[in-house]
Design a protein around this nucleic acid. Structure first.
Length: 228
DNA sequence: AAATTCCCCAACCGCGTGATC
DNA sequence: CGATCACGCGGTTGGGGAATT
């Protein structure tokens, strides 16, 4: 309270304590994500909705991938930033377990100074294709929350690689559960999941990314016996 | 060893958008 | 319809540790 009888900011700010984290986790586990503005009331937290959401999304979410950004992820960040610019949340959708904040920070600390204003012109075709992907992934995220699938993994990577095994996936989205290793064969394509990495083994060289994308689509259906 | 600068990143802020009243 | 609310996004800040002077 201020000395003038004015009610000062009633919300707590600054770093979260372990107790606050615990309260927030308990609340979300019980009631799910969303309705952040009422979390404080029900969870006994003196934090506003914005703060609660941010803490959950950027730090407490169980599906966050902790640890360093891998070279693989770094390449994705670089590529997508060249296309999207500072649209961090868009970029983050292609990096499961990474937050927009994390990617933004990583970019700023590692690349900002190095990148000279390059005039990369991305064709509308490419942008539209990517937008389609993003929308699809958003839809999957919604489905995930409904069917309790832990994560959506998507990797976007330049390809034209001739390495016959474990070709980095161009743009393939795979659903898997519980972070358990999976290996599947789908129409002659093998892919495997290890520690959140998706690898594709192609029996014969394939470089058509649109084909890869289509494979990603029907794998999703097959995995979960769901129809979009 | 102490002071200063640099660097990282968690958290905040303002704003835009869409839903609801 | 406008007002209000909730949410999410991108830019920015500031505390603290690491590196440098």
């Amino acid at each position: 309270m201020g000395s003038w009888g004015i009610i000062e900011e009633e919300w707590r700010k600054g770093p979260w304590t372990a107790e606050e984290d615990k309260l927030l986790i308990e609340y979300v586990n019980l009631h799910g994500e969303g309705r952040w503005s009422s979390v404080a009331r029900h969870a006994g937290l003196k934090r506003n909705g914005k703060s609660c959401r941010l803490r959950w999304v950027n730090y407490l979410r169980p599906d966050l991938k902790r640890g360093q950004i891998t070279p693989y992820e770094e390449r994705i960040i670089l590529e997508l930033h060249a296309i999207w610019g500072n649209r961090w949340s868009t970029i983050a959708r292609s990096l499961p377990g990474r937050t927009d904040n994390e990617i933004k920070n990583y970019w700023r600390t590692h690349f900002k100074k190095k990148v000279k204003k390059s005039s990369i012109v991305t064709s509308e075709k490419t942008k539209n294709r990517l937008l389609k992907r993003q929308q699809f992934q958003q839809q999957q995220q919604l489905l995930n929350s409904q069917i309790d699938v832990k994560r959506v993994v998507s990797f976007f990577e330049e390809s034209e690689t001739k390495v016959p095994t474990h070709v980095p996936i161009q743009d393939m989205t795979i659903l898997y559960q519980n972070n358990i290793f999976h290996e599947q064969e789908q129409g002659g394509f093998f892919y495997s999941m290890i520690n959140g990495f998706a690898n594709l083994s192609v029996p014969e060289a394939s470089s058509n990314e649109d084909i890869m994308w289509d494979i990603g689509l029907w794998n999703l259906d097959d995995f979960n016996n769901i129809s979009i």
